[in-house]
Design a protein around this nucleic acid. Structure first.
Lengths: 222, 222
DNA sequence: CTCCGAACGGACGATTGCGTCCACCTGAGA
DNA sequence: TCTCAGGTGGACGCAATCGTCCGTTCGGAG
């Protein structure tokens, strides 16, 4: 009965203030990651959330856990987008929808791209499974679009990774309104489309060659 | 005469061992930056060069100075590529040559992309001038290619920055043989070409969605 | 060969971030 | 209201990196 009583203390067995703090930490984490990148000090997140460091560590033992928690919702959206894409009748539109949705997500939630690409290194078997499944579904989407003749035959599913990786850099490096991102995506989608002429593009960016973005080197995390 | 005598001590007024060490530091810096990213500890560079930390700092007071020194040659190559591109008779080929050369450089010398994009924030007026000039020349190259009808009319010079930034991420993140890079560049160049059908692509990468590259967040350097 | 000062290497203090420990506080069941 | 398990915050010890200081070494002019 001891277990019983303690488990019922509150909604889901977690004390109300604990649950509230967890939420505050997640909000703060998203804000801080967006502002300072995914490597921002844990203490910064804690301060922003108005909690102590220990509290943060109790809820999320590792930085990875925090990152995963912070962007769980966005990851969910990606999975949903894939399902939606497969549901769209026109194969090309489905493909386009997927690419644009994921890129838009990367664009809107700064910090998410890196989190997304961090790729759940070890992760639970559940994550591995869902990821594997996403890959299979995407391949299906590609084959379907190619069969319809709208997607060029030599497009390879791995090209999606190339696109996302490249696009990631853009949105991470630019404090931008997203013009650069939209432009890159438009260029690429036009290349992906089987043998078409050029279509209109979104407006160009205000970048100059002597522009600001300092792309910090990327030490291999080991 | 004191100035005279000290200035003539050696080739260029610098002691022989000093000049030798400077060179060793530069070589080490390129190697270390390529391996661990541009944020690698200064001490690592010093150790690799077989010199003390102080020596490193004496030759290059700041990390920026070191980075700039290490990749001066590559920067020079970029400038030369631009001149070459303008010299090519066929405007499209000139344009293509430039994009491919710069991207190849980014690909070959890992660490250089970030350095290149670091964009000499303040830098000497000389650097500023040479950069401004590069921009002007590139615009000329673009206009010429557009006038010939080979480059799509809505290509904007700022798109080069978009390409380089995106491409930078790819080569920085992937320990790759360059397949992804070549593929991205090919896709983009096809999009840039005015109203053409698809042309053959380099082979796809071996990336999977659950792939390795961890794109570290990129805290705005401040 | 002798001597001077430029160049050298390594130690050092300062700064910053990480993750844990412990004493205090509080929500909620009795 | 009372009680206490679980929650909380901040201080702390540890590790990594930075940039400087200082005593020593060695190139090269006379």
């Amino acid at each position: 009965m001891t277990a019983e009583s303690s488990r019922i203390t509150a909604r889901g067995g977690v004390r109300a203030d604990a649950r509230r703090n967890r939420e505050r930490v997640l909000v703060a984490a998203r804000a801080v990651f967006a502002e300072h990148g995914i490597d921002a000090p844990m203490a910064t997140v804690a301060r922003r959330a108005g909690v102590g460091v220990a509290t943060l560590y109790r809820h999320f033992p590792t930085r990875d856990a925090l990152v995963r928690g912070a962007f769980a919702q966005q990851t969910e959206t990606c999975v949903r987008a894939l399902a939606e894409a497969l549901a769209v009748p026109d194969p090309w539109q489905g493909f386009q929808h997927l690419v644009e949705t994921v890129c838009a997500l990367q664009r809107e939630e700064r910090g998410f791209p890196a989190a997304f690409l961090a790729a759940f290194p070890e992760s639970t078997s559940e994550h591995a499974r869902s990821r594997q499944r996403a890959e299979r579904d995407f391949t299906t989407l590609v084959r379907r679009a190619q069969a319809s003749g709208a997607l060029r035959a030599d497009f390879h599913p791995s090209d999606l990774a190339v696109v996302l990786l490249a696009h990631c850099a853009l949105v991470t490096a630019l404090p931008d309104d997203g013009a650069a991102s939209r432009r890159l995506v438009a260029y690429l989608l036009q290349s992906f489309r089987a043998g078409t002429a050029n279509e209109p593009l979104p407006p160009p960016t205000a970048l100059t060659l002597r522009s600001l973005p300092i792309a910090a080197g990327n030490p291999r995390r080991q």
